[in-house]
């Protein structure tokens, strides 16, 4: 055997090139928005999980003598009810804590359903192209044309509102973002030479999808998932606010805003507090999504 020409990189400079994972971790630690997102969403997930231990009162227990108490810092506030009480005397802090459960359950559930539909359609359309792609594109246009909120309202109302129905309907109506992104990413990946190499070595379609395509989609899917988490949470709150989502007495932040609306002019915190909770959770999810996108693809920012 002739001695091959030596490889063209000396060992010394090689050690300086970090692995993709190490680079990602370094970018994550330097990304303020990402860290803020992790902290906000992480805290709220913990709050939701630990609700029974964190909530000072039973969120459903009504107490007419204690109705419409203001938060502790306002005049007439009371340390027993840190954030005051609502029209029927339920502890507002406890209801807000339990509300996080509802929002996160619906957000994760709906985003998961949307992800399954959208990713499946997107990968198929992108990988197979041709008539599959044409049909999926048509389906996409049709879905985009439907007024989603209106249809969701009508369906929830007719089928009958429950947490599972709300999750299902929001999920089934929110897959287009997953589809659009995975479709174009799959198209791009499919034309890469490593896919051609896999085909030339005799890999089956399934092997190619699983080993070559999906690992390269994962970071984008996670990014969209976090955005869709926020979007689904907002959709649930809109439905509940309009009275065609989560039904009383379940504590949902959107529903709490609707209930507090009657007292808007003289007890505004009933509206402000659940709104701020919603805002925090959704901005946390969005910061997380933005951060993940910057971290995973530093070249293609925004």
């Amino acid at each position: 055997m002739t001695i091959s020409t030596p490889a063209d990189l000396p060992a010394a400079s090689e050690a300086k090139t970090p692995t993709p994972r190490a680079l990602m971790l370094r970018r994550a630690l330097e990304h303020k928005g990402f860290i803020a997102g992790v902290v906000i969403v992480g805290t709220l997930i913990l709050v939701a999980l630990l609700a029974p231990w964190l909530a000072p009162h039973d969120p459903f227990a009504q107490s007419l003598p204690h109705r419409l108490l203001p938060p502790v810092w306002a005049e007439g506030g009371n340390w027993d009810y840190l954030l005051g009480t609502d029209q029927v005397g339920r502890d507002y802090l406890s209801r807000l804590i339990y509300g996080a459960r509802v929002s996160l359950t619906i957000g994760f559930g709906a985003a998961l359903i949307g992800m399954m539909i959208g990713v499946t359609l997107g990968v198929c359309a992108g990988y197979f192209g041709g008539w599959v792609d044409h049909s999926v594109s048509f389906l996409l246009t049709a879905q985009l044309a439907l007024p989603g909120l209106l249809l969701a309202m009508a369906l929830v109302f007719i089928i009958g509102p429950s947490v599972w129905v709300v999750i299902g309907i929001i999920g089934v109506l929110h897959w287009t973002y997953f589809l659009v992104v995975t479709r174009s990413a799959t198209q791009r990946l499919r034309s890469q030479d490593f896919v051609a190499a896999a085909r030339a070595m005799g890999a089956t379609r399934w092997q190619i999808l699983r080993t070559e395509i999906l690992p390269n989609l994962s970071s984008q899917i996670i990014v969209i998932f976090t955005f869709e988490l926020g979007i689904s949470i907002l959709a649930e709150s809109s439905l509940s606010f309009l009275g065609v989502g989560i039904q009383p007495p379940t504590p949902s932040w959107g529903l709490m805003i609707a209930e507090g609306k009657q007292a808007l002019f003289y007890r505004p915190w009933l509206v402000i507090l659940p709104g701020v909770s919603l805002f925090l959770l959704v901005i946390g999810a969005n910061l997380l999504g933005d951060g993940l996108r910057d971290i995973t693809s530093p070249q293609g920012r925004n």
Partner: peptide, 24 residues
């Protein structure tokens, strides 16, 4: 048969940036 074909013939592509899966 795919295995037999792979044992006889393999490709080398132009762009070494696109011919290796970045995730592996």
């Amino acid at each position: 048969d795919a295995r037999k074909r792979a044992r006889l013939m393999q490709p080398i592509f132009q762009d070494p940036y696109s011919s290796l899966n970045p995730r592996h």
